Simulated scan of single mutants.
Amino acid sequence: MSEFAGTSQGPASVITEPFPDLQLQLLIQLLDRELRSSLPITLNVPSGVLYGDIIGHEAWKAEWARTLRQVEGEAANLIAEFPETVDQGIKEMRAGDDTQLPRWIHLRDATLVVGSVNTVSMPLWRGRLADVSGWGLGQPQ
């Protein structure tokens, strides 16, 4: 007898997502308490090794908004408000659910090492926490 007996459509599709490291989520939550807090960190991500200073979401959002304000053109003012607009939309989606742990990780002064010699430097970086397969405090010498 099938485990799906009685259903005419068959099994429902289930979307699964890798589970982020709980300790890293709690570290990010701690950094979110103080806008000026940061820690040097090295991450293993699918594209290589990434290192920089881990910062909280609010610090990343403030620096991102500051960067966007430097953009010139007719849409500059609209773009500068974008980080706050995104956050407002997320807050509305989560209405009443303050228990969620962070799902994103943010770095300042990040360097991505791809292969043995290729590096990419970025003033700000944001990535999905579930894509981090390993991490350690500190940066390569």
Rank of each mutant, 00 (worst) to 15 (best):
V14K: 07
L39Q: 06
G56A: 03
G73I: 02
L24T: 07
L78A: 08
V86K: 04
Q29K: 15
S38A: 05
A5S: 11
T85V: 12
W64G: 05
G52P: 01
L50A: 02
E34Y: 07
Q9M: 07
F4I: 02
T67H: 12
I15R: 04
E72L: 09
N77I: 15
I79R: 15
A12C: 03
N44H: 06
V45C: 02
E84N: 15
F4Q: 03
V45G: 02
T42Q: 02
P40Q: 03
P83C: 14
D53L: 11
I28K: 04
T42K: 01
G56W: 00
S38H: 07
V14G: 01
A62M: 12
L26H: 06
Q70Y: 12
L31N: 04
P46N: 02
L68V: 00
I15M: 03
H57E: 12
E81F: 15
E81C: 12
L26F: 10
E84R: 14
G56E: 05
W60M: 09
R66K: 15
T16Q: 05
T16E: 09
I15Y: 14
L27A: 11
D32F: 09
A80M: 05
E72D: 01
R33K: 15
E3W: 10
S37I: 04
P83Q: 14
G52K: 08
P46L: 01
T85D: 13
I28P: 05
E74T: 13
A80D: 10
F19K: 08
L35C: 06
S47F: 02
L43C: 02
G10H: 03
L35G: 09
I15N: 14
G73R: 03
P83F: 04
P18T: 02
N77S: 14
A65Y: 10
I41W: 00
W60L: 09
W64C: 15
S37Y: 05
L27W: 14
L39H: 07
E34D: 11
I79H: 13
Q9W: 11
F82K: 13
G48F: 00
I54C: 09
N44S: 14
L31S: 05
K61R: 15
A65E: 13
P20S: 00
E84W: 15
A62I: 08
P18H: 06
N77F: 10
V86L: 14
L43D: 00
E72T: 14
S8I: 06
R66G: 15
F4L: 07
A62Y: 09
R33E: 05
A5R: 13
A12I: 10
S8C: 06
I41Y: 00
A12R: 12
A59Q: 13
R36S: 09
S13F: 08
S8T: 06
F82R: 15
G73W: 13
S13N: 05
H57C: 07
T67F: 08
D53F: 05
E84I: 12
A59V: 06
L27G: 11
L43E: 03
